[in-house]
């Protein structure tokens, strides 16, 4: 009986020792970093400021007589949707842009003649397709993203004063727009904060960018005012 008791006691002690082993292993794992799972990256938004030169309107437009002294600031907002994500190629999607530019000058008066404010304005709607090539950032660790875009400009233009018969001429010019954007993703500055931003708000990446583009608005369809030209934009972007 006493031997049996001894055997049972030994078995219980061994069992307890075996049972305690996994618990000591968990304590050792506290340094292990939990794996980060980024949220889906389906959308992008860009806040942009820049300049646009409607060179299709000719040198007179940029002469000192008219709008040559005005920068013609360009403000725009773009929204992107990326339904397709291809490994090693990046994101493919569609987007839309709303932009505004204005040039103005004061036409000199004198004597009994009034000084007149002469304005030319562009309001551009643009649907587009785009490719967000982020392989360098994802696979190589270089925080650069390249984004070519092809869009179609619906450029609503208006100017005043026009002529006595048509004091405020306005119209619509349409055409392709080709753009190339280079972005610097800001995640590398503080990767931990970038992850927290993703976990808290679903913002995958924030970036600074510059984009150059050429618009063919007014060059394709007959009878439209050629407001085509070069432009650039810089700003802040987010993908989420």
């Amino acid at each position: 009986m006493s031997r049996l008791s001894s055997c049972l006691g030994a078995a219980l002690v061994a069992g307890a020792a075996l049972g305690a082993a996994p618990a000591s292993a968990d304590i050792d794992d506290w340094t292990e970093v939990p794996e980060f799972h980024p949220s889906p990256e389906n959308f992008g938004i860009e806040l942009r400021i820049g300049m646009y030169r409607p060179e299709g309107l000719g040198d007179e437009f940029f002469s000192g007589n008219y709008f040559g002294g005005d920068v013609g600031p360009h403000l725009s907002l773009q929204f992107h949707y990326y339904p397709f994500q291809v490994p090693y190629l990046g994101l493919f999607g569609i987007g839309a842009s709303l932009g505004w530019s204005q040039w103005d000058t004061l036409r000199p008066g004198g004597g009994a003649v009034d000084t007149e404010r002469n304005v030319f304005e562009l309001l551009v709607l643009q649907p587009m397709v785009l490719w967000r090539f982020d392989t360098l950032a994802r696979e190589v660790g270089i925080p650069i993203v390249l984004t070519p875009k092809i869009g179609w400009d619906f450029a609503r233009w208006l100017t005043s004063p026009g002529t006595p018969a048509n004091p405020s001429p306005a119209g619509l010019s349409m055409g392709f727009r080709f753009s190339g954007k280079v972005s610097l993703e800001l995640d590398f500055i503080e990767p931990r904060a970038a992850r927290q931003l993703d976990e808290a708000w679903g913002i995958n990446h924030s970036e600074l960018f510059v984009e150059f583009y050429y618009s063919m608005a007014g060059e394709i369809l007959a009878g439209e005012l050629p407001v085509s030209g070069w432009g650039w934009a810089a700003g802040l972007g987010f993908t989420f």
Binding site: E60, N65, N118, F120, T159, G162, P169, G171, P226
Partner: peptide, 21 residues
């Protein structure tokens, strides 16, 4: 008044947009 539009559309070979606007 001498404005951009009057200068742009005031020439003999004025673009069609000047009259269609």
């Amino acid at each position: 008044i001498d404005t951009f539009w009057s200068a742009y559309c005031g020439t003999a070979d004025a673009p069609e947009a000047c009259s269609s606007s």
